[in-house]
C-alpha cells in the first residue's frame, strides 16, 4: 500500500492507482467529465486538476492520470485549483450551452455565467473523446473518429459519411456525459435503413 495525504488527511492507495481513484475511495469530491472507469484516462478536460505541494514548491496535476506516490501531499481545494476550475467551467458553459448536465455541474461549483462567447447555442459536445475510446477499447471497433485539431476538433465519421463499421451497440451514447452522442450517433451509424455489416 502507498501512503500519502489528500487535504492533509492520511490516505492509502494500491500501487498503480491514480489520485482520483484514491480520492473517490475516500469520498473526496473532485469534479470530472472526460473520466470513466471503463476506459483509459486521457486527462483532457482538466476539470479534475489538484495541487501537488512539496514545501514551497507546488504544481497542478490532473488527478485522473496522476499516479500515486508515497508521501505526496495533494490539495483539492486551493486558490490555484479554484482558478483553473472556474475558468474551465466557464469554457464548458460556452462550448456546451445546450447541456443541462454541464449547467448543473457549473452551478454546483458556483459558476453561473461565462465570459466566453457562445458560438453555437445548440452545442452540447465537449469533445472529451469518451465515445471514441469506448468504441475502440471496450467494443473493440473503431467507428468514431475525433477529427481535425485545435478549435476545429469534432467527433464524427471519416469524410462525414456514415460507416458500416458501427454495430449500433449504443455504448457511446451511454457513456457520453452530456447526451451529445444521441445526435452524433446518427451521423456515424447512418440512417437505420442502411445495411449494417455485423463485424466478427
Amino acid at each position: 500500500m502507498i501512503k500519502f495525504k489528500i487535504n492533509d488527511k492520511e490516505v492509502e492507495a494500491r500501487t498503480g492507482w491514480t489520485v482520483l481513484e484514491t480520492a473517490k475511495e475516500y469520498g473526496i469530491d473532485i469534479p470530472t467529465l472526460c473520466h470513466h472507469p471503463a476506459v483509459a484516462p486521457t486527462g483532457s478536460c482538466r476539470l479534475c486538476m489538484v495541487e501537488l505541494k512539496e514545501g514551497d514548491w507546488s504544481k497542478l496535476v490532473a488527478s485522473c492520470i496522476y499516479p500515486v506516490k508515497e508521501g505526496i501531499n495533494i490539495y483539492t481545494e486551493t486558490p490555484k485549483v479554484h482558478n483553473v476550475r472556474r475558468w474551465i467551467l466557464e469554457m464548458l458553459l460556452a462550448s456546451c450551452p445546450a447541456s443541462e448536465e454541464i449547467r448543473k455541474l457549473a452551478e454546483k461549483h458556483g459558476v453561473v455565467s461565462t465570459r466566453f462567447p457562445i458560438h453555437d447555442p445548440d452545442q452540447n459536445c465537449l469533445i472529451c473523446g469518451l465515445c471514441q475510446r469506448v468504441c475502440e477499447e471496450v467494443v473493440g471497433l473503431s467507428a468514431i473518429a475525433v477529427v481535425d485539431r485545435g478549435v476545429h476538433k469534432k467527433v464524427g465519421a471519416p469524410f462525414l459519411r456514415p460507416t458500416d463499421i458501427c454495430v449500433a451497440c449504443g455504448s457511446c451514447v451511454t457513456i457520453c456525459p452530456t447526451g451529445a452522442m444521441q445526435e452524433i450517433f446518427d451521423t456515424v451509424r447512418g440512417k437505420p435503413e442502411l445495411p449494417l455489416t455485423q463485424l466478427a
Binding site: T42, S44, R46, I88, M91, I127, R149, G150, V151
Partner: peptide, 18 residues
C-alpha cells in the same frame, strides 16, 4: 498557437482563443 493547438485539453483549445 490557437491554430497549432491539438485541441485535446480545454484550457488550450478555449483559453488561447479567449
Amino acid at each position: 498557437l490557437e491554430e497549432e493547438s491539438c485541441g485535446k485539453c480545454m484550457p488550450c483549445r478555449f483559453g488561447l482563443s479567449r
